[in-house]
């Protein structure tokens, strides 16, 4: 894409004095969010999330493995993300980029700190437990991958069914019970552009942003935060973003639970 981003960045910064964004939204407006669950059958759980034209697919696989040494009565959870080259002309083929690794780790932290997955329920028998793998597949990029991925991962986990276990083996075609989910975490991401704070930044706005902040919450507690890019936030800006995350949580949670 290259040079066109320079022009858009200059324009988006210039717009900040008018209180209207590139796509006509107000600073605190999110784009429409659409969730579709259960679209994959080989995966034990799946969800696709659209935020504007950003599209993220999350798939969940459950394998029988070993518990970790320090938690012998629990299963494990692993999160990974791929910024697929088919999602944007700017994403490249090759090993996971630092951006993809950061994305997976931030989503992981919110869901783990929020104790969303009941890890004890994943215990099978002495030395055996379910390993849960959540893979986030970015299919089309137009900003705010963090919120789209958080929602996709959460929705996919809520959609997950655990296979039956018998005689030391899993029966993949017999999925008997829902994965036990104790808590729902959602996130809100803001971007700072020319000293203004924009909720749910689109691709051009992220390109223009000096700093980005993601706050994951379960409505009661803030569960994870991540500041990204080279700029900085004031303490007040962070507290305001926390408010936005807490206030939006119930609405997002309803959307997620409605589509499970």
């Amino acid at each position: 894409m290259g040079a066109i981003n320079m022009v858009k960045t200059a324009y988006i910064k210039q717009l900040m004095s008018t209180n209207i964004r590139e796509d006509g939204r107000g600073f605190n407006d999110s784009r429409e969010i659409k969730i579709t669950t259960g679209i994959l059958q080989n995966a034990e759980g799946s969800a696709q999330v659209d935020i504007g034209s950003t599209r993220v697919l999350a798939g969940v696989k459950l394998d029988i493995g070993e518990p970790m040494d320090d938690t012998p009565n629990e299963g494990t959870l692993a999160m990974s993300a791929d910024l697929l080259p088919l999602a944007s002309a700017d994403f490249e083929m090759g090993p996971p980029s630092p951006e993809a690794i950061e994305l997976a780790r931030v989503v992981d932290r919110g869901i783990r700190a929020g104790k969303c997955v009941n890890m004890e329920s994943l215990f099978i028998e002495e030395g055996k437990a379910w390993n849960v793998f959540v893979d986030i597949y970015v299919l089309n990029y137009d900003g705010n991958l963090f919120d789209a991925s958080e929602i996709a991962a959460m929705s996919a986990l809520l959609n997950t069914k655990v296979p039956e276990y018998a005689d030391g083996k899993e029966l993949r075609d017999k999925r008997i019970k829902a994965l036990k989910i104790d808590n729902v975490v959602t996130s809100v991401t803001v971007a700072k552009v020319a000293d203004k704070i924009l909720l749910d930044p689109n691709g051009d706005e992220e390109e223009a942003a000096d700093a980005r902040l993601t706050i994951a919450t379960d409505g009661k507690f803030i569960r994870a935060m991540q500041k990204g890019l080279g700029g900085s936030f004031t303490q007040k800006e962070i507290l305001d973003a926390a408010d936005a995350a807490l206030n939006r949580h119930n609405k997002l949670k309803q959307v997620i639970e409605k589509t499970r």
Binding site: Q41, G59, V60, P96, R172
Partner: peptide, 20 residues
């Protein structure tokens, strides 16, 4: 032409695959 064929880690009914 550059071509990339790739299978998602969650694509098969059997176990989880490494991506890439």
């Amino acid at each position: 032409i550059k071509c990339r064929y790739s299978m998602a880690p969650f694509s098969s009914l059997s176990e989880h695959n490494r991506s890439g």
